[in-house]
């Protein structure tokens, strides 16, 4: 299973902010993520709701992975050491397969 898909699955239930390529920021709780890193957030909020009235009408949202620029994660939920190890492991496995 791809590394980042697995990684984001461990973050289900955590709060995060997604920055889209149109510069919109959406804050919410991660509900689910798929292999394209399409993301579904619950309890969403945007910094300036008056500017984006469409967000007042929805309670959760699915964001297409390809329109996401950054995902701001809570630092306490990310363990760089284990991510590095997982990356090495994956690199080793793909070498073995060659």
């Amino acid at each position: 299973m791809p590394l980042f898909h697995t990684f984001f699955k461990t973050l289900v239930g955590k709060e995060m902010t997604i920055e889209l390529k149109n510069n919109l920021l959406i804050h919410g709780t991660l509900i689910s993520v798929d292999q394209f890193l399409n993301i579904k957030l619950d309890k969403i909020s945007v910094p300036d709701p008056d500017k984006y009235p469409q967000f007042l009408s929805i309670k959760n949202c699915f964001v297409r992975g390809s329109v996401i620029r950054y995902i701001h994660l809570p630092p306490s939920e990310v363990d760089p050491t284990s991510l590095q190890e997982a990356t090495r492991k994956e690199a080793m496995q793909s070498k073995m397969q060659q």
């Binding site: 889209l20 149109n22 959406i26 969403i44 008056d50 009235p53 967000f55 007042l56 009408s57 929805i58 309670k59 959760n60 949202c61 699915f62 964001v63 297409r64 390809s66 329109v67």
Partner: peptide, 21 residues
């Protein structure tokens, strides 16, 4: 077509119509 989609949100039936507008 999916490439045109940015986001899909479930409508909150209580707030479907923007009250301030």
């Amino acid at each position: 077509r999916s490439e045109n989609i940015v986001l899909i949100g479930e409508i909150d039936s209580e707030n479907e119509y923007p009250q301030k507008l």
